[in-house]
């Protein structure tokens, strides 16, 4: 059921108000345009377009906007930048945390403005600002690929947001709508040997990437754009299907830029889903 701002949904005596609603004169009133959701006695409205609302445990892809003392500010497409504290990142054994805390230049050796990273949302310190950590080896600086940005509503919560498509492309679907598409890196390569190779983890240098992989990355990027334009939720399953379809149709990455081709693809692939 649909509703819009200012519409009375139900009585506040029987139901509790959730996100997207407010109470006035004993009624629960919508503040957003979207679909009404009822879970037991809780009524809320889900908007079909919104910026990212972070929740603990979410996987996000973010971009460093500022380097401050002992922390970084990260753009995650939310109503405020998130915070990544120095204490929340992996540092090489020999590095003294105390030395870094007051030295922003030293901090830039790890993350600097413009850098992209994948992180997890950890419990926040109140006032709604998201706090991130990159303490797992799966997380950290991103390289070997390109970013594409879509509306966060198109990313559904799944058990894992790290996927590998059959075409040899790694995909990180950030809950905040930032998606990283990169050359596939095998699990074992990522973990590294014992010890923590800071140079490797924080390196800005890409590996050599062959043309075939680059073409695959472009194809995936264009497919995501098409789905986003048609507001189709993104999952690795649907992307894999779309990729197969595109290959079957012998479409080059740039063929996917044409509107008719895009429309066609969505029709065919969503019918198969």
């Amino acid at each position: 059921m649909l509703t819009s701002p200012g519409e009375v949904i139900t009585s506040a005596m029987e139901f509790m108000r959730g996100h997207g609603t407010f109470v006035e004169d004993g009624s629960v009133v919508a503040s957003l345009s979207g679909t009404i959701e009822r879970v037991n006695k809780l009524v809320s409205v889900r908007a079909l377009q919104t910026r990212y609302h972070g929740e603990v445990g979410d996987l996000v892809v973010g971009r460093i906007t500022e380097v401050q003392a002992a922390r970084w500010k990260v753009d995650v497409n939310s109503h405020q930048d998130a915070i990544l504290r120095l204490s929340s990142v992996n540092l090489p054994g020999g590095v003294q945390r105390r030395k870094l805390e007051s030295d922003e230049l030293e901090m830039r050796k790890f993350f600097e403005e413009g850098d992209l990273l994948v992180a997890e949302v950890q419990p926040m310190h109140g006032d709604g600002v998201l706090s991130l950590h990159t303490r797992s080896l799966k997380y950290g600086k991103l390289r070997n690929g390109q970013l594409i940005s879509v509306s966060p509503v198109l990313i559904r919560r799944r058990s894992t947001h790290f996927c590998t498509l059959p075409c040899g492309v790694d995909l990180i679907l950030g809950m905040n709508g930032y998606i990283w598409i990169a050359k596939h890196v095998a699990e074992n390569e990522r973990e590294g040997e014992e010890g923590f190779d800071a140079e490797a983890v924080y390196s800005n240098k890409n590996d050599d990437i062959d043309l075939e992989t680059r073409a695959a990355i472009s194809r995936v990027s264009n497919l995501i754009s098409i789905f986003a334009r048609h507001s189709v939720p993104l999952t690795d399953t649907i992307l894999a299907k779309a990729y197969d379809w595109a290959v079957q149709q012998e479409l080059s990455p740039k063929d996917l830029l044409r509107t008719e081709t895009g429309d066609n693809m969505v029709e065919m692939v969503t019918a198969l889903a």
């Binding site: 971009r63 390289r143 800005n204 890409n206």
Partner: peptide, 15 residues
């Protein structure tokens, strides 16, 4: 445009 990371920039130029 908005700033890119060094890795992104290098990926694009090499491409």
């Amino acid at each position: 445009a908005a700033p890119l990371s060094k890795a992104e920039s290098s990926y694009l130029s090499t491409g």
